[in-house]
């Protein structure tokens, strides 16, 4: 059974065709990395999966049923920035999801229930390496720590699908490598289905079990928005030869303006 399935999906903003005829099927537990030139519609695709945007045409299915047209706890997200709440400290940021579920009106818990949630949050924070920063505010954290926090915050809800939009794009290379280990260990432990956008093709090859390249099949020099992007490469990883890597790298480079 496919977790996510898209059939002839189109997304247009007025005259601007962003996605064109995208069809795909994703099984539970796949780790999909997505690359493509900047502005080609990767984030738009993620927003379709989130339910923040709706497709202009075509079907997008979750477990064979039309995807809910607003975000919910099934699909967790980490953006490149602004994923965590600046007015809550590290611990509160991670407790939030559980507190919302436990207390529909106030969104806050007290006493025993709060202690249970707190314990769970501390464990989660320790597993992402933030055990010593529980009471810090996000603005006191480095970029890498903020992304760890955003991951912990999303994971505590046990989403079925995790969406990552260039989550490590703003991090230094050394810290990035740490984050790669973290995300891989999370993926192995939870069996999540992960979609991760990256602008680093190597990162995409290293992390994923499957790589998608978003690109335009057709170009109209007079009207660059007339045609949208679609998946031009869909590569199961681990079986890739060097020439494919090289070809993709060139196609990405050629489209940079």
């Amino acid at each position: 059974m496919n977790v996510i399935e898209a059939r002839h999906l189109w997304k247009e903003y007025g005259d601007n065709v962003v996605l064109e005829n995208v069809s795909l099927a994703v099984k539970a537990g796949e780790f999909i990395t997505v690359v493509g030139t900047s502005g080609c519609g990767k984030t738009t695709f993620l927003k379709l999966l989130l339910g923040v945007e709706t497709a202009t045409r075509g079907d997008l299915l979750l477990d064979g049923k039309p995807l809910p047209d607003e975000p919910n706890a099934d699909r967790g997200i980490v953006f490149q920035r602004y994923s965590v709440f600046p007015h809550l400290n590290v611990l509160e940021n991670v407790m939030l999801g559980a507190e919302l579920a436990a207390s529909p009106f106030w969104g806050r818990t007290f006493g025993k229930r709060r202690r249970a949630i707190r314990e769970q949050a501390v464990a989660m924070l320790e597993s992402v390496g933030l055990g010593t920063a529980l009471l810090k505010y996000p603005s006191e954290l480095s970029g890498g720590m903020q992304q760890r926090l955003a991951l912990a915050q999303a994971l505590i809800k046990k989403p079925r699908i995790l969406l990552l939009d260039e989550p490590f794009g703003a991090l230094d290379p050394g810290i990035r490598a740490d984050m790669h280990q973290l995300i891989l260990s999370i993926w192995r432990q939870t069996g999540l289905t992960i979609f991760m956008i990256t602008h680093d093709l190597k990162e995409g090859f290293y992390l994923g079990t499957r790589l998608w390249v978003f690109d335009k099949r057709r170009h109209d020099p007079q009207a660059p928005n007339r045609f949208g992007a679609t998946i031009t490469y869909d590569i199961p990883l681990g079986h890739t030869d060097r020439t494919t890597l090289h070809t993709i790298q060139q196609s990405l480079g050629a489209n940079h303006d």
């Binding site: 967790g76 994923s83 915050q153």
Partner: peptide, 14 residues
Amino acid sequence: PEEQLIKAQTLGAS
């Protein structure tokens, strides 16, 4: 930031 509002919804917020 829109990201915050989306994030809260993915945490199940009404």
